[in-house]
Amino acid sequence: MDGHASPRPGPASRLDSLRPKLPGLALCLGIAVAAVWLRRASGIAALNPVVLALLAGLAIRAAWGRQTLLDPGLSSAIRPMLRFAIVLLGLQVTLAEVLALGPGALALAVTVVAVTVPAAVWLGARMGVQPGLAMLLGMGTGICGASAIVAANQVVRAKDEDVTYALAVITLCGSVGLVLLPVLAAPLGLTAPQYGIWAGAALHEVVQAVGAAAAGGPEAAQAGTVTKLARVMLLAPAIMALGWWVARGAAAQGTATKVQVPWFAFGFLGMVGLASTGLVPALATDASRWLVPLLMAASVAALGLATDLRALGRRGLRPLGLGIVLSLLIAAVALAGVSLL
Rank of each mutant, 00 (worst) to 15 (best):
328 L>N: 05
165 Y>S: 06
44 I>K: 01
13 S>F: 06
58 L>S: 05
171 T>L: 12
139 M>E: 06
312 L>Y: 03
257 T>Y: 02
216 G>S: 09
60 I>C: 03
12 A>F: 12
164 T>M: 03
123 L>A: 03
219 E>G: 13
270 G>A: 12
207 V>E: 08
205 E>S: 01
240 M>Y: 15
196 G>Y: 02
45 A>H: 13
197 I>M: 09
196 G>A: 00
230 A>T: 00
55 L>I: 09
46 A>G: 12
109 A>V: 14
292 V>D: 01
83 R>I: 00
3 G>D: 15
32 A>E: 02
240 M>A: 15
57 G>H: 09
83 R>H: 08
247 A>H: 11
62 A>S: 15
10 G>H: 13
227 T>I: 08
247 A>E: 14
311 A>M: 05
104 G>P: 05
169 V>F: 05
72 P>V: 14
282 A>Q: 05
105 A>W: 01
212 A>H: 05
176 V>D: 02
149 I>N: 01
104 G>M: 12
176 V>T: 06
304 G>A: 08
122 W>N: 10
217 G>A: 04
90 G>V: 07
202 A>M: 07
218 P>A: 08
269 L>N: 07
251 A>E: 09
36 V>S: 04
236 A>L: 12
237 P>S: 11
37 W>V: 15
134 A>I: 11
126 R>K: 08
248 R>D: 03
49 P>G: 13
276 S>R: 00
255 T>A: 11
82 L>V: 14
62 A>L: 12
69 L>D: 14
184 L>F: 10
153 N>D: 10
263 W>I: 11
232 V>H: 12
253 Q>S: 14
55 L>C: 13
290 W>Y: 12
34 A>K: 08
151 A>Q: 08
46 A>P: 15
329 L>Y: 09
187 P>F: 04
120 A>M: 01
60 I>S: 06
126 R>F: 09
89 L>D: 04
245 W>L: 14
192 A>T: 02
111 T>S: 10
187 P>G: 01
258 K>L: 14
172 L>P: 00
49 P>R: 00
260 Q>N: 06
169 V>T: 05
62 A>D: 13
58 L>T: 07
333 V>W: 00
200 G>Y: 03
172 L>D: 13
235 L>C: 04
124 G>K: 11
207 V>D: 02
157 R>N: 14
223 A>L: 07
276 S>Y: 00
66 R>A: 13
128 G>I: 14
289 R>D: 04
325 V>T: 15
311 A>I: 00
